[in-house]
Nucleic acid binder design. Structure first.
Length: 558
RNA sequence: GGGUCAUUACCUCAGUUGGAUAGAGGACUCGGCUACGAACCGAGGUGUCGGGGGUUCGAAUCCCUCAUGACUCACCA
């Protein structure tokens, strides 16, 4: 059990003992680092939070709680309370050593308890197979893959899926556009994609193909390219699902329509088939089958697809561009009519990505052919910087992707700050052993360090007999490391990998601040050296795990 | 007209179920390498958290309202 969990449990038990109330789990107890070092090392606002429930003044609760905790925590912390209802903990060396000990093991992630495990399907990117991926897709790809990874890390069963929209009008448009090029005809430019966007896919085709065959072959080439680019961003999917084959041709679509009919929600009018959406609470009825060609609308396909998804997972997460937000209401109402709980579907709407280059916005338009692709940007900045930039802004906020900034290899670029901290920490550990290998004044070896790190009493050496600056820097780092699991959990809860990324930047900063005054390799003081190497090891463990989850590389050498 | 999202330092952005004096990076000034990696550290000041109202012990955070901006409200996908 982690130190936080232990402390929270003790607080919870104290509350239960004093007030005989029910507290289901320790997650309702918060722990924070006080914003002023003098208050203590950790604090909780539990008295403020429970004041309403307990109908007692927060200060009184704090006093009672404090008295109770003083006894149970006497080995690991001093406890005091202060108005309006904070409880502050000043940790003893033993407590710090206990935290440090937990991080010696590479396996630091606390998975969710088995009863909270969920089957989650995350659908993202889902670009039309009609051209290159643009930066909007890139944002979805990075964010989606990070979310998948976060949920997997916590122990959920996750399925990541790319929905190939290969069933509608846009495929015909692709076919027309590709055929124009294939047959060397003059483009009408009406209702066709600009030649420069797709001509690179209309190559190496055998002679004598029909328009339908051309469409299929070009689509496959485009898909292959999309897969390749996504892989270059470290984005891979468990499942690629074709709208045409698996939703339309498989009969799922017809079944779904029939189900709606059975529920008496469908009628015919003006040659079209309508969903009686008003009855479900929508502002107007919606067409399911078009009068013109008796083909399914996007809504119909989407309902069928989501029914198919719900058959495979209990919780669905979609990442859509903000321009699709109009679909949200009717989809959810339709799902309700299909006896699926819309609350189990969360749609994240990703706001626009604007590209800046040389201080000017690069306007993107598919129509005019001025589309900046993921491939181009990726080539310029690399996958790690690309991912970090995409993750650094909350989904709900417009993202400004400044190529000049992202390309810079200095501290204005957050990815280097993170990676440098990791490489620096790795360098110290490497160096500590290298000296040993060279047969110079060996003060440690890997096995010696391992043995040392197993004894909790040894680990206290990092916190005793050192000056104030070194002590504060060491404590600041370690205390924040202990929040790793909470940040991971929050990222999942808020569907916001940004939380985790910010946290990693923070501990990178704390590591750098620790590094400056705290010399680790010091043959004069072997115990301190070894204990500090353990702290550095702990930092590396957290950073490595965090970067791996976000699919950003953790280089030992830069 | 209806809906969704945003508005935080000069710039780009964070801000953990409402908590102690609102943060980071860049930009600007100064200091720190014969030094475990200076791609780093330390110091310096910057805010009507878009405006206004409300909820309460306490609001950047919750509610209402106004302003500004983006997106959206099709038998397109």
């Amino acid at each position: 059990m982690s130190f936080h969990k232990k402390l929270k449990t003790l607080i919870k038990q104290a509350l239960i003992k004093i007030y005989s109330i029910e507290i289901p789990n320790e997650n309702s107890i918060n722990l924070e680092i006080p914003n002023n070092y003098n208050y203590g090392d950790l604090c909780t606002t539990a008295p403020l939070i429970f004041a309403k429930t307990l109908k007692q003044s927060p200060l009184k609760i704090a006093e009672n709680l404090c008295n109770e905790l003083k006894e149970s925590l006497k080995d690991i912390a001093e406890v005091n309370f202060v108005a309006p209802g904070f409880i502050n903990f000043k940790l003893k060396e033993k407590a710090f050593a206990e935290i440090l000990l937990k991080f010696q093991d590479n396996n630091i992630i606390e998975k969710v308890p088995s009863e909270e495990k969920q089957q989650i399907l995350i659908e993202y990117v889902s670009a039309n197979p009609t051209g290159d991926l643009h930066l909007g897709h890139g944002r979805g790809a990075v964010l989606g893959s990070a979310l998948v990874s976060i949920f997997k890390a916590l122990g959920h069963n996750v399925l990541s899926e790319f929905y190939i929209n290969d069933a509608g009008e846009q495929m015909l448009k692709l076919g027309r556009s590709a055929s124009t090029i294939y047959f060397g005809k003059e483009s009408s430019n009406e209702d066709e994609y600009p030649k420069e966007l797709i001509e690179k896919y209309v190559v190496d085709l055998s002679a004598g193909l029909s328009e339908e065959e051309i469409t299929i072959q070009v689509k496959e080439k485009i898909l292959e390219k999309q897969k390749q680019i996504l892989k270059a961003c470290k984005v891979e999917f468990d499942s690629w699902i074709s709208e045409k084959q698996e939703i339309h041709d498989s009969g799922i679509l017809d079944q779904t329509l029939q189900e709606l009919k059975n529920n008496d929600l469908v009628y015919e009018k003006d040659g079209a088939t309508w969903l009686n959406a008003i009855k479900l609470g929508d502002q107007r009825d919606r067409v399911l089958i078009k009068s013109e060609n008796q083909k399914a609308t996007y809504l119909m396909g989407d309902l069928a697809y989501h029914k198919h998804k719900f058959a495979r997972a209990e919780k669905l997460i979609n990442l859509w561009g903000a321009d699709h937000q109009g679909q949200d209401v009717s989809l959810k109402l339709g799902l309700k009519a299909l006896n699926k709980n819309p609350e189990n579907l969360t749609v994240l709407f990703l706001q626009l990505v604007s590209l800046f280059k040389d201080n000017e916005e690069v306007k993107m338009s598919k129509r005019s052919g001025t589309l900046i692709t993921v491939e181009e940007v990726l080539e310029e900045v690399g996958a790690d910087a690309f991912r970090t930039t995409m993750l650094n802004t909350h989904v709900n906020n417009r993202l400004i992707f400044d190529v000049n900034l992202v390309k810079k290899k200095d501290d204005s670029n957050p990815v280097f700050y993170l990676q440098y901290a990791f490489a620096r920490a790795s360098g110290i550990l490497r160096r500590a052993f290298e000296d040993n290998f060279k047969g110079e004044k060996a003060f440690t070896s890997l096995t010696e360090l391992e043995e040392f790190s197993k004894d909790i009493n040894n680990l206290t050496f990092a916190f005793i007999n050192i000056n104030e600056n070194e002590l504060i820097a060491s404590k600041n780092l370690l205390l924040r490391l202990e929040f790793f699991n909470q940040e991971l959990y929050n990222s999942a809860k808020n569907l916001n990998p940004c939380n985790l990324l910010n946290y990693l930047s923070e501990i990178a900063g704390l590591f750098h601040s620790f590094y400056a005054p705290c010399k680790a390799i010091n043959p004069e003081n072997k115990n301190l050296s070894l204990a500090r190497l353990c702290l550095i090891q702990a930092f590396r463990n957290v950073m490595k795990n965090g970067l791996e989850i976000l699919l950003i590389s953790a280089p030992e050498i830069m």
